[in-house]
Amino acid sequence: MLILECPYCGVKAEETELAAGGEAHLKRFGPGSDDNDFHDYLFMRENPKGVHFERWRHANGCGKWFHAARCTTTLEVFGTYAAQTYEPPQEIKDKITAKRPGWSWREFSDASE
């Protein structure tokens, strides 16, 4: 069972109170964009064994979207953060680095390297 703290309510929400929203920090390629970019935006997703970033919605709660950083292998949660950002905050990256030195995910990685 997954428990994520909603950054808006401060509530430790259990998985059934949440709705999964897929991968985080996707850059949208819409009308007028290159076919390959559009294809990748629609279909290409990370499937990591380890550090992962996701979108979740506190559906049975405040209704807000937020982000979560967690490990797909151990289900360890590194932290949750607001939806209004294009990348994970430094504080979250530091928490991941402390636990998983040398991690990387898409364009983000252990900044200490």
Binding site: C9, V11, T16, E17, A59, N60, G61, C62
Partner: peptide, 10 residues
């Protein structure tokens, strides 16, 4: 005060 789920409904 808590918003949550009771069995199948909000």
């Amino acid at each position: 005060f808590r918003r949550s789920r009771t069995a199948q409904v909000a």
